[in-house]
Structure formats: C-alpha cells, structure tokens
Simulated scan of single mutants.
Amino acid sequence: MEFEKAVEFLQVQGTSFVINLVAAIAIFVIGRWLAKLLHRLVTKAMKRAGTDPLVITFAGNILYALLMFAVVLAAIGQLGIQTTSLIAVIGAAGLAVGLALQGSLANFAAGVMVVLFRPYRVGDYIEGGGVAGTVEEVQIFNTELSTPDNRRVIVPNGQMLSDAITNYSSHSTRRVDLVVGVGYGDDIDTVRRVLEGVVADDARVLSDPAPNIRIGSLGDSSVNWIVRPWVNAADYWDVYWEMTEEIKRRFDREGINIPFPQRDVHVYHHGGKNETD
C-alpha cells in the first residue's frame, strides 16, 4: 500500500515536472522570439526617428540583453525555483565576477561614454587604440573597425578612450598638406606660377578657405614649398595623390628640378698633397 502511494506520488510529481518543464521551454522560446521582435521594432523606430547608428546599436544590444534576462527568470520561475533567492545569488555571484572582470566593466563604462559624448560615429574614419580604420559598429564592450586594406579589427572600448582619438571625418572639409622641394637655381616666380596653376585647375579645391602656397623652408639641398589647398573630406586622398603627380608632370615640362640630397666636396692642394673637406 505504501509502495503504491509512493509510485502514485512520483507519477504525479513527474507529470507536474514534465508539464512545468514544457511550459518553461515554451516560455523561453516564445520569450526569446518576442525579445528579438521587440529589438527589431525598437531599432526600426530609432532609425525612423533619425537616431545616430552608434546609439541604435549600443542601446539595442543592452535592450536585448535585459529582455533575455527577464525571459530566463520567467522560465526558471515556471520550474518552481524561487527567483528572489536566485536573484540574490546572482547578485552575489555578479559582485564576485565583477571584481574578476574589472576590465570588461571598464570597457562597458567606456562604451557608455562613447554613446554619450560621441567622439566618433559609425562611418567615421578614425585613429585610436593603435588602429586606424572606419567605424563599423560600437558594441557593449568593443568597437569594430574596418581598415583600408579590408581587415576587421575589434578594439576594446576602454582602450579606445584611454588613448588619443583622431577623427578624420568629424569635419566636412580637410586641408591637404604637400611639401615640394625645388632646386636653389630655379626661379621663384616660375615655381609659384606652376604651383598656383596646378591648384587652380583642380575643380575639387575649395576657394574658401583660400589655398596657401609659400616657401616653407630653405633645406640643405632644396627650397621647400608648402602647398595647402582645402578640399571636401571625401576628396582628400584623391586630391593628395593626383595633385602630387600633376606637380611632377608640370615641373618636368617647365624644366623645374626636384633635387635629391647631395653634398659638395671641395679639394684643396697643400704642399703637393690633396686634402678634401
């Protein structure tokens, strides 16, 4: 009799556990689907509102993580586990893990700082954390960059903010800085005319601010001119390379020399022996 009652009790408990387990799995599956759906809806809403892509990605990741945490707690609660005690245990464990993962927490805090102060945005070409590239995505802990040679580099947010950040895309215009060396025997007015002609003939050069063309320094072997036109940021590298090439072409046509480093050697005769300086 006692055995039959024990079997019946186990059957009832087993059936109840199976039902609760199936319900918990259903809660997890449906909750995960709803979390993804809500994540997509919120992301689309922020995009329609014109929110910065950096904020969309960062906020979306945090929202999804919080939703999944709530879904997991609901599924565990369906199994009959006391979630209040579980939360306390998770809190204590979280404190211990937090102390062990201080670097990750620092990266998370740095990610929040990036979202708040926006030293760079998605699509900006930056140099920071020892890497230069285009910002593809800002995640909770990392910033993803795409380098000019198509490499994907993941830099911790803490490393990005601990170093100087150079944002080449923050302004719509940039100044092209060229240094051109010519021989000391070349006519200054001719060189100036040629350089001004190269700059004036390039339609991508902006008139405001005006280009600056001057003698920058007198080097050991050359007279060094600075050529500094302003262009739209998107045209920077094309203007830099093509203008350098065009200057060389026109110098060749005008007979203007681009000297290479050289040294004059003077020979003196003393008592029938040659001495050099």
Rank of each mutant, 00 (worst) to 15 (best):
M1I: 07
A6M: 12
A6W: 11
V7C: 12
E8A: 03
F9W: 00
V12P: 10
A26M: 10
W33K: 11
L34K: 05
K36M: 14
L38A: 06
L38Q: 04
V42W: 13
V42N: 14
T43P: 14
T43E: 13
K44E: 06
G50T: 14
G50M: 09
V55E: 09
A59G: 10
L63H: 06
A65M: 13
V72R: 06
L73K: 07
Q78F: 09
Q78I: 15
L79G: 15
G80M: 14
I81P: 15
Q82M: 09
Q82K: 06
I87F: 14
I87E: 15
V89P: 12
L95K: 06
L99Y: 01
A100N: 12
G103A: 03
S104F: 00
A106H: 07
N107T: 06
N107W: 15
A109M: 08
A109T: 09
M113C: 09
Y120N: 01
D124T: 03
D124V: 01
E127K: 10
G129S: 03
G129P: 12
G130Q: 01
G130M: 04
T134V: 05
V135C: 03
E136I: 10
I140P: 06
T143M: 01
L145M: 02
T147M: 15
P148T: 03
D149W: 14
R152Y: 06
R152H: 08
P156M: 01
P156L: 02
L161V: 11
L161R: 04
S170W: 00
H171G: 10
T173C: 08
R174T: 14
R174Q: 09
V176G: 08
V180H: 00
G181H: 14
G185K: 00
D186I: 01
I188E: 06
V191F: 15
V191C: 14
V191E: 15
R193L: 07
L195A: 04
R204M: 05
S207M: 05
P209A: 02
I213M: 04
S217V: 07
S217W: 10
S222D: 12
N224K: 15
I226Q: 14
I226E: 13
R228K: 12
R228E: 09
P229E: 02
N232K: 01
D235W: 03
D238T: 04
Y240G: 07
E242W: 04
M243C: 03
E246L: 07
R250Y: 00
E254Q: 09
G255F: 01
F260Y: 04
F260S: 04
V265I: 12
H266T: 12
D277L: 01
